[in-house]
């Protein structure tokens, strides 16, 4: 009986183990080995840390690296600021059919491919786009206005793409907060901001943290949005990785870049968890 249960357990575990090993662990080990290789001649390689030294020695790489991190953190923060009131409204202020309808409306854009959604923004923001025409028509601008290919456009795209992944965990945690707890706060003399600070946010922290982690990861690793809305010179780290692999055919340096990105995201997530006093089990479980 016990042996059978064990077998069943192993069989059930198999798919995820295979998935993790074949698609995540093995490629990463291989990548790591490639990143430690240096090409010394035609078809000749030696083990060295040259790729990582190249990364650290080139200011452009470092600036792009830092810029990507800061932009991703900023995008996460803005997403949180926008998503929190939206989630609070959906979870607490309305009930019944309207609630599910609004929740669905957050989901609907994700039925369309990310590429198409990003093109949608390009249609709105480009020189001959909707906003530009609107400004000219209303007389606020004398000529065509180019709103694409800058950091603000990237930010808009990133926040838009990430919204759902912040709203879902926030709505879930906020819904689990009993209305009478909020009322008790008012009843005992609390004001709106103090209830938000002392009752609602502490309760929603697991949702805030898990939403933020997901949004941060998505933004940091996003390739499409920065490239399309930010243009060729948007200096996004994933673009550097892409160009090393595909354009320069320098897999060694690309692999090293990939590893730096992995380290960066791990460090920032770890720091965020430490800062908010949460653990990964608590927020993801």
């Amino acid at each position: 009986m016990r042996a059978q249960a064990r077998l069943g357990f192993i069989l059930l575990l198999m798919p995820i183990l295979l998935w993790l090993t074949a698609l995540i662990v093995i490629p990463h080990i291989d990548m790591f080995l490639i990143s430690l290789r240096e090409r010394v001649g035609v078809g000749e390689y030696a083990t060295s840390t040259a790729n990582y030294r190249t990364f650290l020695g080139e200011p452009l790489y470092l600036v792009t690296f830092a810029r990507t991190a800061i932009m991703a953190v900023t995008a996460t923060f803005i997403t949180l600021l926008i998503a929190f009131p939206v989630s609070y409204y959906i979870a607490k202020m309305i009930k019944g059919r309207l609630q599910s309808a609004l929740f669905l409306m957050c989901l609907v854009p994700f039925w369309v491919s990310e590429l198409v959604r990003t093109f949608g923004w390009m249609i709105l923001l480009r020189e001959t786009g909707l906003f530009s025409n609107l400004l000219q028509w209303s007389g606020l601008a004398s000529g065509p206005v180019e709103m694409l290919y800058n950091d603000a456009a990237i930010m808009v795209g990133l926040v838009y793409t990430s919204m759902l992944f912040m709203v879902v965990p926030l709505v879930t945690t906020l819904e689990s907060l009993d209305d009478s707890v909020i009322e008790a706060g008012y009843d005992l003399g609390g004001s709106g901001p103090s209830i938000l600070r002392e009752i609602i946010i502490p309760h929603a922290t697991p949702g805030i943290v898990s939403g933020s982690i997901v949004v941060f990861m998505l933004s940091l690793g996003n390739y499409l949005t920065p490239t399309m809305l930010g243009g060729k010179d948007s200096l996004w780290f994933t673009e550097l990785i892409y160009s090393q692999f595909i354009v320069r055919f320098n897999w060694e340096l690309g692999a090293a870049f990939g590893f730096m990105l992995l380290i960066l995201s791990s460090v920032i997530v770890w720091a965020m968890l430490r800062l908010t006093g949460q653990t990964l089990e608590k927020t993801m479980g």
């Binding site: 009478s180 707890v181 009322e183 008790a184 706060g185 009843d187 003399g189 004001s191 502490p202």
Partner: peptide
């Protein structure tokens, strides 16, 4: 409600679980 000299014990007590 937060300025009234009345306080309320709620049906499910509504103690603050985070404190």
């Amino acid at each position: 409600p937060n300025k009234r000299p009345v306080n309320m014990v709620f049906q499910h007590l509504a103690l603050f679980p985070m404190m």
